[in-house]
Design a protein around this nucleic acid. Structure first.
Lengths: 219, 219
DNA sequence: CCATTATCGTTAACGCCGTTAAGTTAACGA
DNA sequence: TCGTTAACTTAACGGCGTTAACGATAATGG
C-alpha cells in the first residue's frame, strides 16, 4: 500500500541529487559545488534539495561517504594482491592510498580538508578510510615477524602519516613543479617518491653499523 | 619625489589592515575572515581595502607570509638547540614544526589548505617553510654519519611527510578524540605520537636480525 | 595663493552564496 | 469528496567578493 510511487520518486530524486553533486565535485571541483549548481543539474530549484538533505554540509557529507566506500574497496583489493603479513602488503596499501587520492583528488581534498574536516572521528569513515585495513595488516605483519614488535597503533599512525603527509604536501605545494624534486633529472611525483621512501620506512634513516656506502641518491 | 607623508599614511593603513586580518584569522578563524570583517575592525569600508590589496587572495597571501616568517625563525631556533649533524637536531625540527602548527593552527591550516593552496611552490614560502633548514640539517647529518647516505631530497621529503602527515591527520580526523589513540590509557596528541615515531624513523619498521623476517621485498 | 592632481576613502550596486518562509500542485487514504 | 501530505516552486533575507562612480582632503606646481 504505502511504500508507493511518491516515496519511490522521492528516493530517486535524492539519488539524482547525490549523483549530480558527485559529478560536479569530480569534474568541476569543490568551488563549483553549490546548492544552485546541483539543483540546475537535476532540473529543480535549489530549495528542493532541502527536502532530502538538511543543508549543504549534510549533502556534502553524503557525497563524500559514497566516494569513500570505493576507497575502502580499492585499498582492500590492493592489499590482497600481496601476501598477508608481508611488508609488500603494507607498501601496497600505501601506494593504493596515494593512487586513489590522486585519481579522486576532489574527494580526497574535501574529506581531509583542514578547514571543514568531514570525519568527526576516524570511525566516521567507511572502514575508517582504510584505517581498519591498515591496522589489520600491521597486526598480521607483526605476528608474521615481518616488522618489529611495537605498539601497532603507533605503527599504523606512522605509516598513515608518511603516505598522507606526502600526499597533502604534494597537493598543497605542487612539489612536482619544484626543480629540487627531480630525482636523477626525472620529475618525481608522489608515487615515485613513495617508492623511494620504502628503504627508509623499512630500515630507518639511521646509519647502519659499519655503514658508509651510498645506497641511493641523485646526480 | 619624496616618500612623503601621504605615502606613509597609506602604508599605515596597509599595516592596520594586515594586523586586523591577522587578528581575525588567529582569534576567530578563517571563516570569520572577510573583507567586511577586516574593514570593520580597522574602521573603514570594505572596498577601501582594494586600495592596498588586489583582492582577498592577495590580502590572505600577505597575512600568511608574515605569519610564516615567524615559522622559519621558530624552526631555526629549535634546530640550533641541538648539535649540528645530529639526529636530535632533525627530531627537534620535526617537533618544532608540529608545535608551531598547533600553536598557530589557523595559519597552518590556511597555508596548507588543500582547497586553495597558497604556496605555488615550496620556494614561495619564506625559508621554504623550513624546507631549506631541514635540507641543510639532513646534509649535515649525512656528512656527520648520523644518518645513512641516501638522496637527501628524498630524506627531506620523507621527514617532512611524517611530521606533516601526522599533523594534518590529527587536525582533520581529531585523532585525540578516538579511543583507539590512547597509548597506555593516556590520550595522545600529535606531539606524544611524534615522540613514539622516533624509533621507527631512526631504525625502520622492519624486524631486526634475529626475528625471522620476510625481508625479500621488491627492491 | 590658487588650481591641479593624486591619494584615500565613501556609498550603491551586481551577482553569487546558503538558507528560510510561504505558496502551489498532484496523488493518496478515508 | 475532502483533507492530508509529499514534492516542488517562487520570493526573499542577509552575507559574501568585487566593481563603479563619486567625494573629501592633502600635496604639489606655477
Amino acid at each position: 500500500m504505502s511504500v508507493s510511487v511518491s516515496t519511490r520518486r522521492g528516493a530517486e530524486s535524492e539519488q539524482a541529487i547525490l549523483d549530480a553533486a558527485r559529478d560536479i565535485l569530480a569534474h568541476e571541483g569543490v568551488e563549483a559545488l553549490s546548492m544552485r549548481s546541483v539543483a540546475d543539474r537535476v532540473g529543480m530549484s535549489a530549495t528542493a534539495i532541502y527536502r532530502y538533505f538538511k543543508n549543504k554540509d549534510d549533502l556534502v557529507r553524503r557525497v563524500v561517504r559514497v566516494g569513500f566506500e570505493r576507497f575502502g574497496a580499492y585499498l582492500s583489493a590492493a592489499g590482497e594482491e600481496q601476501p598477508p603479513g608481508s611488508l609488500d602488503r603494507l607498501a601496497a596499501l600505501g601506494e593504493a592510498y596515494i593512487r586513489f587520492a590522486l585519481e579522486n583528488e576532489a574527494y580526497f581534498k574535501l574529506l581531509f580538508s583542514l578547514q571543514h574536516p568531514h570525519p568527526h572521528s576516524i570511525d566516521d569513515l567507511p572502514h575508517g578510510a582504510g584505517h581498519g585495513l591498515l591496522r589489520t595488516a600491521v597486526l598480521e605483519a607483526i605476528e608474521a615477524g615481518s616488522i618489529r614488535r611495537y605498539d601497532p597503533d603507533v605503527i599504523v599512525m606512522y605509516l598513515w602519516s608518511v603516505a598522507h603527509g606526502l600526499l597533502t604536501l604534494s597537493m598543497s605545494c605542487r612539489i612536482e613543479e619544484c626543480p629540487e624534486f627531480e630525482l636523477g633529472a626525472v620529475p618525481c611525483g608522489p608515487i615515485e617518491l613513495f617508492e623511494q621512501f620504502r628503504p627508509l620506512v623499512r630500515g630507518g634513516i639511521a646509519a647502519g653499523p659499519g655503514d658508509d656506502g651510498d645506497e641511493g641518491g641523485a646526480a
